[in-house]
Write a protein that binds this DNA or RNA. Structure first.
Length: 443
DNA sequence: TGAAATGTTGGGGCG
DNA sequence: ACGCCCCAACATTTC
């Protein structure tokens, strides 16, 4: 009798659980393959439903034709298409993230919630609020490492403090990488929730389609990366960065598919993790110099100068070409990023935060940790940064890396050395002024 | 993941 | 054949 009752009870509990949904909240992991949170949810639960929230707090700051929103939207449509094979779909909504979750908890019977960790300060805080909400509602939840090979506390110095210099960090990272298994996960999609949600159109989300598109990535070119990476006219670019930003490919998939002897490329991926852990350990770098001894630099912060830089009208062809590539495509070659960033900080003496903000608006691959880290590197204010007296000569850089002007002519139409506008500031003068200003500003 | 300034060396012109 | 000068080429130091 008692045994029967228990059996019935467990049956009804089973039926009830079978009715409940398990949510995988995707954010910057817009893929089905090798998605850690999704993998574990599928393994442990039935009725796994994907959720994506267009976060008002982020979207309200963006122009209506933001290219990243278009890319996210298209990636979601692609995901949704793949889910159709399993009679499932993505539940996609725009709103205030907390309000959306309150509504979901109210409208659905939720058994568990899963998501991959995001390490940016805003995201960390936002996610904590959702975790609190789930705790209050008594809903099981689990977060996962997915975005990086190693999180901030997995690569530490012997005294357990974080690394702030790249090379020893990299050595430790490589040593740790050898001893671990990071093969991509194979998932079983049979436990996806049967659903037929419709993804809102880009207009319904309050946006319009951008003309700027994310290019597909390629891993083939990586073989020659070390030889070609400094030459912006050689488009040997992998275009992985936006895909890593939004997780349309996982870091484990990338590393697994790297050709032999791509240490230099791998090193760039380690820079990505280096800056990710720097931001996570030192969130104050978002608004401050990593090294406070540079706080006294008196930036000129001239608005007209900044405008010229943004538009690519500095009179320095390589700087102008880079900025025009950025404005037209949402991308800029890495070598040129260093040149334009150095020019803004050192020739124009404009606070790196202005440049950082402009890149944040324009770059398809914008990532707070990497963008901040690299801008501070350029300005000389960062951890393991370029010394302040290392000043790029925009003309020398052409001689070294765009000798035949191919890159420049690609982005500066009808470029003519003789009729090109005069430099907005003389190099020698700007160099001296920079050295003087930095010397004076450093304590 | 610099570039400029300064220092050193050695070959060739020339008296 | 010698010493002197010039300067390109390379090396080192400095910013």
């Amino acid at each position: 009798m008692i045994k029967n009752a228990l059996t019935n009870l467990s049956k009804s509990v089973f039926l009830y659980l079978d009715f409940m949904i398990n949510i995988v909240w995707i954010r910057r992991d817009l893929r089905l393959e090798d998605n850690t949170a999704l993998h574990h949810a599928l393994k442990s639960y039935n009725n796994v439903q994907l959720l994506f929230i267009f976060d008002d707090a982020i979207l309200n700051e963006l122009p209506l034709d933001d290219a990243r929103v278009t890319f996210i939207h298209q990636s979601l449509l692609e995901l949704d298409k793949q889910l159709k094979a399993y009679n499932s779909s993505v539940y996609c909504i725009r709103g205030n993230v907390q309000e959306v979750w309150k509504q979901l908890l109210n409208d659905y019977s939720i058994q568990s919630v899963h998501f991959n960790r995001d390490y940016e300060p805003y995201a960390t805080e936002r996610d904590q609020k959702i975790v609190d909400l789930l705790n209050k509602s008594g809903v099981k939840h689990q977060t996962y490492k997915d975005h990086v090979i190693f999180e901030k506390n997995e690569i530490l110095k012997a005294d357990l403090s974080p690394y702030t210099v790249y090379t020893p960090y990299k050595n430790k990272w490589l040593a740790a990488f050898k001893n671990q298994n990071s093969t991509p996960l194979k998932s079983n999609f049979k436990t996806l929730n049967q659903s037929n949600y419709i993804i809102p159109s880009i207009e319904e989300l309050g946006f319009t389609t951008s003309q700027i598109k994310v290019k597909p990535y390629t891993l083939e070119s990586i073989e020659n990366y070390a030889q070609t990476r400094d030459f912006p006219s050689i488009d040997n670019t992998s275009y992985l960065s936006p895909h890593l930003r939004f997780g349309t490919i996982s870091i484990r998939q990338v590393i697994k598919q790297l050709p032999q002897e791509s240490e230099v490329f791998l090193s760039e991926l380690i820079w990505r993790e280096f800056f990710t852990q720097i931001l996570a350990h030192f969130p104050q770098v978002q608004a401050n110099n990593f090294k406070s001894k540079y706080n006294g630099i008196e930036w000129r912060n001239n608005k007209d100068d900044f405008e010229k830089w943004c538009k690519g009208e500095t009179g320095y062809p390589i700087v102008d070409a880079g900025m025009r590539q950025l404005n037209q495509t949402g991308y800029m070659h890495n070598r040129v990023r260093m040149i334009v960033a150095g020019f803004l900080c050192k020739h124009l003496l404009i606070d790196w935060k202005w440049g950082e903000a402009y890149f944040a608006k324009k770059l398809l691959d914008y990532d707070l940790a990497a963008n901040n880290g690299n801008w501070q590197w350029s300005a000389g204010t960062g951890c393991d940064a370029a010394p302040y007296f290392r000043i790029f000569n925009p003309t020398e850089q052409i001689k070294k890396f765009d000798k035949d002007l191919t890159y420049i002519k690609t982005w500066v139409k009808d470029f003519n050395e003789l009729t090109y506008p005069k430099p907005m500031v003389d190099h020698k003068f700007a160099r001296e002024r920079c050295l003087q200003t930095y010397r004076k500003g450093i304590n």
